[in-house]
Simulated assay, not measured.
Amino acid sequence: MKPTVAAVIKELRALANPEKVDFKQKKFGVIAQNALGIYQKDLKELAKEIGKNSTLAKALFETNIYEARLLCSKLFNPKDLTEDLMEKWVVTFENWEICDSFSMGVFARSPLAIPKAIEWSTRTEEFEKRASFATIAGYCMADKKAANSTFEQFFPLLYQAADDQRIYVKKAVNWALRSIGKRNVDLNKRAIEEAQKIKQLEFKSAQWIAKDALKELEKETVNILDYPRSIYRPKK
């Protein structure tokens, strides 16, 4: 397939299934405008076939077709990301799926990840605010060499947002906290301490965030990733 907008849209329409639109809405709470009904696995296969192409990705986003925008997040090279593009895209997020696809696949892999995550942490709109914490969660995997101090700066943001009762915000705050706590043993200890602080807040959202995070982070079998490996798994 020649990687043109017309060719890609033709391929997307061939994959379309209206029943999947209804299924994703009922099963996963994914409500999207102009959706064709295509699962992530099929979009990933298509993205692999096409390869990274930022120009094509941006053009696909402009079609306003939901799955074309999801595909954009898989084709766009994070090295080409600008602050203007981040702001243009984040305000369009209408559900957790597209928010997380961009946050993890593009934003978290960009040098702009940290400043924008910090900025967005106080946004009013649900999925703009979720993008902050989804980007933090993604950054925990994207930058395997970052120092612990890089992640410790996020703890005040998590604490501040723990009073947000909206499901997709509180889940992202919890996700970010757990992700930080699984990087290495030292951040695990710090994340547990932060969870205990959040647990002292009176908000129901804070209680859930803290208890759910502690349930995983305090397990003996918690999957600690040992990043940066040069410190936590030094070669002998």
Rank of each mutant, 00 (worst) to 15 (best):
K41Y: 06
K41S: 15
L43S: 05
E45F: 04
L46C: 11
A47N: 13
K48D: 14
E49P: 14
E49K: 15
I50N: 03
G51N: 10
K52T: 10
N53E: 05
T55Y: 01
L56T: 08
L56W: 03
K58H: 12
F61Q: 07
F61K: 05
F61S: 03
E62T: 08
E62V: 07
T63R: 01
I65Q: 04
Y66D: 11
Y66F: 14
R69M: 14
L70Y: 00
L71E: 01
L71F: 02
C72R: 00
C72N: 03
S73F: 10
S73K: 00
K74W: 06
K74A: 05
K74R: 09
F76I: 13
N77M: 00
N77W: 00
P78D: 00
M86R: 02
E87G: 05
K88L: 09
W89H: 03
W89C: 01
V90I: 10
T92M: 04
F93M: 05
E94G: 12
N95I: 06
I98T: 06
I98H: 00
I98C: 00
I98S: 01
C99D: 10
C99L: 02
S101D: 13
S103T: 10
S103E: 04
G105K: 09
V106L: 10
V106G: 07
F107A: 14
A108C: 14
S110Y: 00
P111C: 04
A113V: 11
I114S: 06
P115W: 02
E119M: 06
W120P: 15
S121Q: 05
E125M: 02
E126D: 14
E128I: 15
K129T: 12
S132F: 05
A134W: 01
T135R: 04
T135W: 02
I136M: 08
A137Y: 05
A137S: 11
Y139M: 13
C140E: 08
M141I: 11
D143P: 03
F151Y: 14
E152W: 02
F154G: 10
F154Q: 04
P156F: 00
Q160M: 03
A161T: 15
A161R: 02
A161G: 06
A161S: 12
D163E: 13
D164C: 07
R166T: 15
R166C: 14
V169Q: 09
K170C: 12
K171L: 09
K171W: 07
K171D: 13
K171Q: 12
N174G: 06
N174Y: 01
